[in-house]
Amino acid sequence: MPHNAKSSSHAGLNVAVLVSVGRHPLTARARRADQDARAVEMALSMSDAAVHLIHAGGNGSDNEEALRGYLGMGIGEVNLIKQSSGADVVPALINALRDTAPQLVLTGTRAETGEGSGLVPYLLAEALGWPVINGLAQVESIEQGVATVLQALPRGKRRRLRVRLPAVATVDSSAPAARQSAFGPARRGELAARACASVPDELQAQWQVQPARKRPKRLKIIKSASARDRFKAAAAKADSGSGQLLSDVSPEQGAEAIFALLKEEGVLR
């Protein structure tokens, strides 16, 4: 494990990555979760950072295969906190994070199995009293306990944030893709299992879980008193005539009109 050896000598940043077992969307096989793997990649790409991975959950054979996927990225070991199935992993994770005291906790935005509510990072941050930021695309720099990061927004936009460490951060799908998992290191790596008391999630036991039903498509409802209006709305090809038509204008006038619209919509920077 060259990475860990290098960073421990520097005694630099201590980064914990919370990883989970993912599920392939098509084959439904257990795999490393996509966003969590991106979080690991982001942690590995930070210079002189000591990266350690924490997983809390059951320890089935499928799960082990999936967790070895993270080991294959060049990680020495994964701290495995054994929990019974249907347990609430948040208390166990809080304990683990209190013990290791990392400066930065990275994780995916939401899990690919189970409830997948994306609440765990917020719950951890609230319990530890740390700030939480979501949707990380890139960590630009970490200096004197302040991290400068880029947050991914919809439509490919980015927002620069500065956050005081220690902090919890979730990684967006637009972060750099995870490196491939190598087979040899994945075999050689260690899953350091540790038993921990499980807190059962009682609320979840009451839920009824079923395969996702296709959502009904919304119908176009035309509320009108007269049959003529309803027929017109049903037979309409395109809503023409609603727009403004500028013909016989000079190019400057046309450009001015377009400019006014662009400015009103706020797309000009």
């Binding site: 395109a238 809503d239 023409s240 005539g241 609603s242 727009g243 403004q244 038509l245 500028l246 013909s247 016989d248 204008v249 190019p251 400057e252 046309g254 450009a255 009109a257 377009i258 400019f259 619209l261």
Partner: peptide
């Protein structure tokens, strides 16, 4: 017909003016 604003004219000239 679909557009909210249509400007009729030569595209190159209008783009240059814009």
């Amino acid at each position: 017909k679909r557009a909210d604003l249509s400007v009729i004219g030569d595209a190159g000239e209008i783009l240059a003016a814009l």
